[in-house]
């Protein structure tokens, strides 16, 4: 395991799931749960004669940021695209469940528990969703994760961090949307149906997945920041993500509720104003929306360094 201090300067995009899990919490605080030495690999991949991994491509554990207990879930894109199967799905579900249970235990033991002392969950997404080799089990695990996210409401804030190569797509795209707060780097990508799938189903006219710039404009961190689908856009280092989590860890449940996109009738009403705008605009390109948000030169935003971007970008309000 690399030294924690070295990890902080490391590119988030280039970091593997375990390094992210260790680096997102404070130095020396991470304890892995169901780690590789427990050897819980996928029995279904084994049946199919596919290579297995001792952690099934998902690192789960608990650490601390300041005084906040942090339950970490970190997906490994290099292992079958970070896909979710029975074992990895169970780890994910149970990490959130443990956080809720721990919250309840602490709240009962300490009536004066402060916001900072309450546990949070951090999910580092790098996935296309369901693992096809065990698709049915993967699908059912997704439903369990959504159930746990709702059960965490009003108790345990859940933070999504997205800045890894594979991005966050498929069913995990709406899992991320259902968290309280989303932190991305500009290299992070978030969506539901991947561009390749859209092209395959609806044709190149609908979405040319070979146009990498278009793909990034549509699903990338800058776009998601402009439309409000991510709350914070940070630099591509583990340290930047860690520091953002540390800042968030002291916030109140009300603060987190305000950061949500969905999860109440009011939030849905707000999203529907965006949908009405989509119907009216029929944007051909994410840049149309950037311009609508008040960015006079949307083309310039793409390559703009992050500090300049954050200083001058106008975000969509509906």
């Amino acid at each position: 395991m690399p030294k924690w201090n070295d990890l902080q300067g490391r590119s988030f995009l280039e970091s593997n799931a375990r390094d992210r899990a260790v680096g997102l919490v404070d130095e020396g605080t991470f304890t892995e749960l169901a780690g590789p030495f427990d050897r819980f690999y996928s029995p279904h991949l084994e049946t199919l004669g596919e290579a297995v991994e001792f952690d099934d491509g998902i690192v789960t554990g608990v650490g601390r940021v300041g005084v906040t207990p942090v339950f970490v879930i970190s997906q490994e894109g290099k292992f079958i695209g970070g896909s979710v199967g029975e074992v990895g799905g169970a780890k994910m579900v149970n990490a959130i469940r443990l956080a809720i249970e721990f919250h309840d235990t602490l709240a009962a033991a300490h009536p004066d528990l402060t916001d900072a002392e309450k546990p949070i969950v951090v999910i580092s997404f790098e996935t296309g969703g369901v693992r096809l080799h065990e698709s049915n089990a993967g699908l059912l695990a997704h439903a369990e994760v959504m159930d746990q996210l709702q059960k965490a409401r009003g108790k345990v804030p859940v933070i999504a961090v997205i800045g890894s190569k594979v991005g966050c797509f498929g069913g995990m795209g709406f899992v991320a949307a259902a968290t309280d707060c989303i932190v991305m780097s500009e290299f992070g990508r978030l969506g539901l149906t991947g561009p390749e799938v859209i092209e395959q189903e609806m044709g190149k006219e609908e979405f040319d997945s070979g146009d990498r710039a278009l793909v990034f404009r549509t699903t990338g961190g800058k776009h998601k920041y402009i439309v409000g689908d991510c709350n914070y856009l940070v630099a591509d280092t583990l340290g930047a993500f860690h520091d953002q989590i540390a800042e968030l860890a002291t916030k109140s449940l009300a603060d987190f509720e305000a950061m949500r996109r969905i999860g109440s009738p009011e939030k849905v009403a707000q999203q529907l104003r965006g949908v009405a705008l989509a119907a009216e605009m029929q944007p051909k390109d994410a840049r149309d929306v950037w311009a609508h948000a008040g960015n006079a030169d949307p083309v310039a935003l793409t390559d703009m360094p992050l500090p300049d971007f954050l200083a001058q970008v106008k975000r969509l309000s509906v």
């Binding site: 780690g35 590789p36 292992f79």
Partner: peptide, 18 residues
């Protein structure tokens, strides 16, 4: 002490050394 290293990506491997 035991050590774990690597990710089972395509063309890659992981090892547990104990």
């Amino acid at each position: 002490a035991p050590v774990h290293h690597g990710v089972v990506g395509s063309g890659d491997m992981e090892v547990l050394m104990e």
